[in-house]
Simulated assay, not measured.
Amino acid sequence: MTARPRGWLIWALTPLVAATMTIAPASSASAEPGSSSSSSDDKSKKSDEDKTADEGDEDTLLNDVLEATGRRYQTAKDAVAKSTKAQLALSVQVKNAEARRDALIPQVSAVANQQYRTGGVSTMSFLLDSGSTTAFLHRAISLEEINSLNDGKLRQLNAAIDEVQASKARLDAEVKAQKQNYSAMAKQKEEADKAFALVGGKTVTKGFVLAKSPVADPAPRNSSGGFSPEACTQDDPTTSGCVTKRTLHMYKEVRKAGFNRFAGCHRNGGPFEHPKGRACDWSLQKSGFAPFHNDDTFQYGNNLMAFAVRNADRLGILYVIWNRMIWFPASGWKTYHGVSAHIDHVHISML
């Protein structure tokens, strides 16, 4: 058997060695969390407790949403911790692969340089220089072994380069997943904080409030997009007095949202918005006013307040008072120091 000539080796090895020498070693990954191992979670269906307020039942309480958000936050945090170990392991793989690659580069480079300086070994002259048939066969076998050795080194180098690239790709995927998990954690926390703060947090509702409210039809605006001052020209549906058009619109929207217990709007005399037809007091009772005394009356007030606050911009609401706190669109919730603690009704004043 005659050996295949390897005259192409010089041309194959020289550019390959030059190319591999330019590969920059990967920096070791820091022990930062993140996870790409959540594909099974992505494929599985969400459980009811993991649904957001918009996905869940309409009667979901904000407390339930906060609990579900907390669970999702913990899941993302666990994935981040799990990915820390994965990134460390991949960093070791990258270093080991680079070490094998770097050890092979001088060996392959030496072969390429030798071929370049000597022009390589002529297969025919190498074999014809044999003194006997036995020597010819021995030289043929030796030539095949030399070529196999060189080819083996080349394959090892290519395999080492591929391993470095594959390990880096896996590490990059872990880092990307880590960023996604951190982003998800931050978003969930921000959404939970906003939702809770908007309706007064634990101070006002203790979390016993619907996670979402009906969307009110918007009140008419002027040509500039704002709310112009209005006179008290409309009949008050709760008294013999009057209310503004905007107040009447708010009254109808609150009723349409399902809040049908006792209410009073216009009141003669006194300061603020009632005498101007720009305010309504929404009782927790079917008739008259009395402080909340059970879950039903407390949650009714919470939900009515939440409807007003969440639709304040659409309805043109100036401020809301409930359970010793007052809410302004510009500043949020503050402690209310008025004469009434407003634990027997929700007060809504209009622009």
Rank of each mutant, 00 (worst) to 15 (best):
P5R: 08
R6Y: 12
G7P: 04
G7H: 14
W8T: 03
L13D: 09
L13S: 09
T14H: 11
P15T: 05
V17G: 10
A18G: 10
T20E: 13
T20R: 09
T22G: 05
A24D: 04
P25E: 13
A26P: 09
S30H: 07
E32G: 12
P33E: 08
P33W: 02
S35E: 06
S35N: 07
S37H: 12
S38W: 15
S44P: 05
K46P: 02
T52D: 03
T52L: 09
D57F: 11
D57S: 15
D64M: 06
L66A: 10
L66P: 02
R72G: 11
T75L: 08
T75S: 09
A76V: 08
K82D: 14
T84K: 11
Q87I: 03
S91N: 03
V92G: 02
V92A: 10
L104F: 04
P106M: 02
Q107L: 05
N113M: 09
Q114E: 15
Q114F: 14
Q114D: 15
Q115V: 14
Y116H: 15
T118L: 00
G119I: 08
V121P: 00
D129N: 13
H138E: 15
H138P: 01
S142R: 07
S142V: 13
S142P: 00
N150D: 13
D151S: 12
D162Q: 11
Q165R: 12
K168P: 05
L171M: 08
D172Y: 11
A177F: 13
N181H: 13
A184S: 15
A192S: 03
A195Y: 05
L198I: 03
G201S: 06
K202Y: 08
F208S: 12
V209W: 01
A219M: 02
S224I: 00
G225E: 05
G225N: 10
P229Y: 05
C232F: 03
T233G: 07
D235W: 04
T239W: 15
K245Y: 11
H249N: 09
H249F: 06
K252R: 10
V254T: 07
R255S: 10
K256C: 08
R261F: 09
H266V: 07
N268S: 14
G270F: 01
F272Y: 13
G277Y: 13
C280L: 10
D281C: 03
D281Y: 07
W282I: 15
L284C: 04
P291F: 09
F298S: 11
F298H: 13
Q299F: 00
Y300F: 10
Y300H: 04
D313I: 01
V320T: 14
I321S: 05
W327T: 00
F328P: 11
A330S: 11
S331E: 03
S331P: 02
H342R: 00
D344N: 06
